[in-house]
Design a protein around this nucleic acid. Structure first.
Lengths: 159, 159
DNA sequence: TATTGTTATACTCTATAACTATA
DNA sequence: TATAGTTATAGAGTATAACAATA
């Protein structure tokens, strides 16, 4: 069960030991791997993974409120404020206070934001296809299913 | 294929759209989820996930060199220096310069470090079991296999 | 009273480059 | 010249708490 990581230490025959079975570590390494790939594939768009997620989510949910978006993406509200303001300053999104709840903040893409997302989409798709190209389509689907099952496990973390 | 995340937005019916199929996002969310769990399960040991990984790796590979360890754990060398020094100051590891290469730095657990790892092990195991308890043993094994296959995909990133 | 967003602070992690001492 | 580790700096992400406005 630990063969793969145990031998993967192509460097100096590093033994991962019990850690080779740690899903926590595997997830961390996989995420780093995926992010590195992301930066390679989408570098010319000058967008970070988090920003891209936010932009795409706003496109799918025009007028979504900051807090709702933050919870969906597991981003702290304080941090979401910073990211949203940055995207607003970059002219990619618009932030408006709804009439029915003047505490809230609704997010929408500007035309430029929409254009940016449209420009990124093909590269994003290519990134996913290439980064996970070592897996068969079936394996990738299984991986998605398992990760979704894992995520649905517990109640969403409170803020 | 996207049903789960699309409905999982229990909050306000958030639609993940194309992002629901993004393995990159799923990995990020899963890792956050796992880390949050880690802190809950191992809080009393006052150890962060990264530090724990380093300690366990040193236990499995006494005398491993900093650079080799950094590459195995996908940690930048500069960062590894800081973490190793911190662990040394905490009395958990010893750092020695080997005779055959005076540029290098070998890492070993101190008796206290060994004790710390021994104390953490059961909680770590419990954390993994509990955090991934929503998956069957078979599913967890499949998840490990798929992540390992993904990680073995490309050549290790250069520093 | 509780909630939404905001501000402020601090710490971790990451990225980069320049530096040293060895090889 | 190249490598192992170090130092310095900057930025991104995160965690926390306190705050104002509103509900």
């Amino acid at each position: 069960m630990a063969e793969m990581l145990d031998r993967a230490a192509s460097d100096d025959a590093v033994r991962f030991g019990p850690l080779a079975g740690s899903l926590g570590l595997l997830l961390r390494l996989s995420q780093l791997h995926s992010f590195a790939d992301f930066y390679g594939a989408l570098s010319r768009h000058a967008v970070r993974p988090g920003e891209m997620s936010i932009l795409m989510m706003i496109r799918e949910n025009p007028g979504i409120r900051q807090g709702v978006l933050a919870k969906a993406l597991m981003i702290k509200r304080a941090h979401m404020t910073k990211m949203a303001r940055r995207l607003e300053e970059a002219g990619l999104i618009r932030r408006t206070v709804p009439e029915d709840d003047r505490r809230a903040m609704e997010l929408r893409l500007t035309p430029q934001g929409r254009a940016r997302v449209a420009a990124m989409a093909p590269d994003l798709e290519a990134h996913e296809a290439q980064s996970f190209g070592g897996l068969t389509a079936k394996e990738a689907a299984t991986l998605r299913t398992l990760l979704r099952k894992y995520l649905a496990l517990e109640a969403p973390k409170e803020d």
